[in-house]
Each structure stands twice: as C-alpha cells, then as structure tokens.
Design a protein around this nucleic acid. Structure first.
Lengths: 213, 213
DNA sequence: GTCTATATGCAGATAGAC
DNA sequence: GTCTATCTGCATATAGAC
C-alpha cells in the first residue's frame, strides 16, 4: 500500500521496519511500566517522533498491544503444538514444554512480561477477551503432558495435576522477570535445572544407593 | 486525633473503620485492574461516596497504595522472622516458609496481587523505592534456608540456590492469582503439596531403589 | 511519514458550603 | 464526613499542512 516502491540502499532498513521499530519501543515501555501507565507520548519520544505521527502507523495504543501479544501467542502456540506432537516419554515432553516456554519468552521478552503483569487489566478490555482462550490452550498443553505421565506411571498421582501445572508453569514463565541468558547459563541450562528440580526435587540423594549429590 | 471521643453504639463499626472500608475497596480495585488503571472516582463509587470525599481520609491515591502494601509487608516480615528463628531441619523450615508465605497471601490477597503485578510500575515512583528493600529481605530469608539445607547435606548442591529460590518463591506467591482456599483444599494442604513437589519431585517412586531416574 | 495545532475527555486534587 | 463545584494538567486521538 503505502510502502515505497523504489529499492533503497540495501544496507538501510527495509520498508515496514518502521512499524517494528515503534513496536519494539512500545513493547519495552509496556513491559517496564505497564500498559496503562505508558503514554503514547513516551512511545513517540522513545522512537524520536511526535505522538501524532504514531497514528500514521497504528490505529490506537490498544492496536500496538494487540500486535505485540498476538505475535507472542502465535509463536507460543506453534512451539507447544510441536512439543505435543512428539509422543515420547512424559519426562522428556515435560522438559520440552519447559524449553519451548523459555524459548518463546526469550524471543518475546517484552510481550511475555506484558502478558504476565497486565493480563488482568487487558481482560477488562473487550478487544482483548481473546486472551482468555490463549490461557486455556496453554493450560491444556501442560495438563496433557502431566496427565499422560501420571497415566503411564512415570509421574506421581497423589498431587492434583492442575496444582502441579500452575506451580510449574508460573515459575517458568515468570523467569522472564529475572533471568537473563548468558554464555555461562543459557536457557537450555535453566530448562534442564528447572525440570530436574520439578521432576526429582531439591532433596539430596545421599542416603540412597550410592550418592548422586 | 480526629476520632470521635464519645462512645457509639457498640454494635456499630468503630471509628476509623471508614478508612478500612475505603482501603478494602481500593485494594480490590488495584488488584483487579492495576493501580495505574484504577481511578479515585472508581474507588469512591465502590465505597458509595464522591471522589472528593476520599481526600478527607487520604492525602492521595499513592497514600492508599502505600498503606495497603506497608501492612502487607509488615505482616510478611513478622512471619518470616519467626520462621527463621526456628533452628529446625531445613526441610521443615522450607515448608514453614512456604506456609508463612501462603498465610500472608491469604491475609492480604489484594496487597499480594498488587505487589506481584505492579511492582515494576511502583518502583518507578520515588515514594515506593522502599519496596526494593522488602524484596531483598524476602530473598535473604529463602536463601538462608536453602543454603543451610545444602550445607547440612539435606538439599542438593548442584543447583544454583538463587535459581531454586526464584522458581519456588514465584510459584508460591503467584498462587494468589488462582488459589482460593476451601474446606476441602486449605492453604495447609497447598503448602504440603507444593513443598512435597519441590522437595521430592514429580517423578513416581514406583520402581524400587534402583532406577529412580 | 512527520509535523503543527488542537479537539475532547478524564485524570488527580482542592476549597469551601453544608 | 460528605457534597458541590471546579481547577489544572495530561491523556488519546484527529485534521490537515508540509
């Protein structure tokens, strides 16, 4: 539509990139201060334009939030679907679910934080009622894996699987608030450690056969 | 100061109760929609007065948030202190820390949710910079218990204790978003189940001593 | 695609009557 | 202790020039 039709310097940013630049600024601000507390002026300042100019690219502030969260949820859904398609051992699938979650969070850190912090607020806005569905799908994915594990006898059956799901998923997703992946401690290691904690527990295995600790 | 000096009908609410009523309404709204997105008019509506009248009781909206969070944090600090004073087995103390957390969350559900959701936003306001300290104290309490357990050989030493702390504490505190205690499933049971999951893991112990992995 | 200028509404907060 | 009335500022969003 309004995209330029001539080819610019190939080293310059492509057309359409401007939208992404704005969304990046907006997402960072939304994540840090909350959606309601972030003004379109702050977003414009961060980009380096005036607030009125934002409306050339987006219909409203809500529209920006919408795009940010939608792409996050699309990615999340894709990865969870792939994990569920694998019919492997429940322990492996649980680990894969943890890893997939951390990968999505790493790819969309701001969106993940917005989802964590502002979900209640957003659900009060009609436009975002679809978020309720997204939450249900996430829960279904985890419960499928947990319940399969219990059925196979691999997982304990004495705990309510919904409670187990909540405790594990929230712990993993909230890592976006404090975890910064590094060479020394990449997300794969966090996924391994978290899964190991959830599956085997914090208790030392000294007393057992040999000593694994 | 401004409290009435005569004794009213003993069945009526005591003087000073009006403040509490307002704080309750405010806390519920702050928790549900977020502090920034809640207006003083909504609070007044909920109480059944006009927004201007709120300022007879409180200096500002921030002052309300301040009182709500302060009493929550005071209670939290008290209970954590008591748990740390007990020099019992690390497993027991970890359970007690979980239980203390759930008790505070149960006693101040709205405040706990505000703290969870709006901490980033509030930390951007000078008045609330003291919240940073509160967070450090919580972390110290958990790390003390975890590290003591590792030192005693009761807990595994192969996981970073800060990571373990984050995963467990966030899972427990976030339960305020979904857990509603009932006769059938009171907080004591959640504390037990969560502690059991963290300490012993989700893996079934069907096979004997041999392969637990 | 950005700017200037501005419409419109609602936010937090205040002063003084009752 | 609440209400009436209102101040002040800033929010989102728009219209049209450049």
């Amino acid at each position: 539509m309004s995209r330029s039709t001539v080819c610019e310097d190939p080293l310059a940013r492509e057309p359409g990139d401007r939208r992404e630049t704005i969304l990046d600024s907006a997402a960072a601000l939304f994540a840090r201060k909350g959606v309601a507390a972030t003004t379109v002026r702050q977003i414009a300042d961060d980009v380096g334009i005036l607030s009125g100019s934002l409306y050339h690219h987006f219909d409203s502030k809500e529209a920006m939030v919408d795009e940010i969260l939608s792409s996050f949820l699309r990615d999340l859904n894709d990865r969870y679907t792939k994990v569920l398609a694998q019919k492997t051992d429940a322990r492996v699938r649980l680990h894969d679910l943890v890893m997939a979650s951390l990968e999505v969070v790493e790819a969309h850190p701001h969106a993940a934080e917005i989802y964590q912090n502002d979900l209640n607020y957003l659900l009060g806005i009609e436009r975002f009622s679809y978020l309720r569905n997204a939450g249900r799908q996430v829960q279904d994915a985890w419960l499928t894996v947990i319940d399969a594990g219990v059925a196979e006898g691999v997982f304990r059956g004495d705990l309510d699987s919904k409670i187990v799901y909540r405790l594990m998923r929230e712990a993993i997703w909230l890592s976006v608030r404090w975890f910064k992946p590094s060479r020394a401690y990449p997300i794969a290691k966090l996924a391994g450690d978290a899964t190991s904690l959830f599956l085997d527990g914090l208790t030392a295995e000294t007393a057992g056969p040999p000593d694994r600790a």
